[in-house]
């Protein structure tokens, strides 16, 4: 089970590197979306590993609510894109 978490951590490092490397706003948003899903999945796996309901509930909540933040941010960025030809 520890091996699985280490492998998930390695998978998490890829989008973090991508977010650092790429200077295009939508590529960064993609990396953010990937990280949001991956971290909440890691929380879920840890909660099952430790048999802890409380952490599990938090993982599910973050999984379902964290994406809402992404959509709001995507729309704000899209609108500033349109109004001012904001070139990244």
């Amino acid at each position: 089970m520890n091996g699985i978490i280490i492998a998930m951590l390695l998978a998490l490092l890829i989008p973090i590197y991508e977010a650092y490397r790429d200077s295009h706003i939508w590529q960064k948003m993609l990396a953010f979306a990937s990280i949001a899903t991956k971290t909440s999945m890691m929380i879920l796996v840890v909660s099952v590993l430790r048999d802890d309901w409380m952490i599990g509930v938090v993982g599910v909540l973050i999984l379902s609510v964290g994406n809402a933040a992404l959509m709001l941010l995507a729309h704000v960025i899209k609108r500033s894109d349109e109004a001012g030809v904001y070139e990244p």
Binding site: W26, L30, G56, V57, V60, L70, A74, D81, E82
Partner: peptide, 29 residues
Amino acid sequence: EWPLLILALISLAIWNTVLGYVLAYCSYR
């Protein structure tokens, strides 16, 4: 812990699909 995990399964399926659509729509221009 099936209720929790089923909830996670459903929210994952719905939200990730919707998010894919929203990101594609916003980045299309």
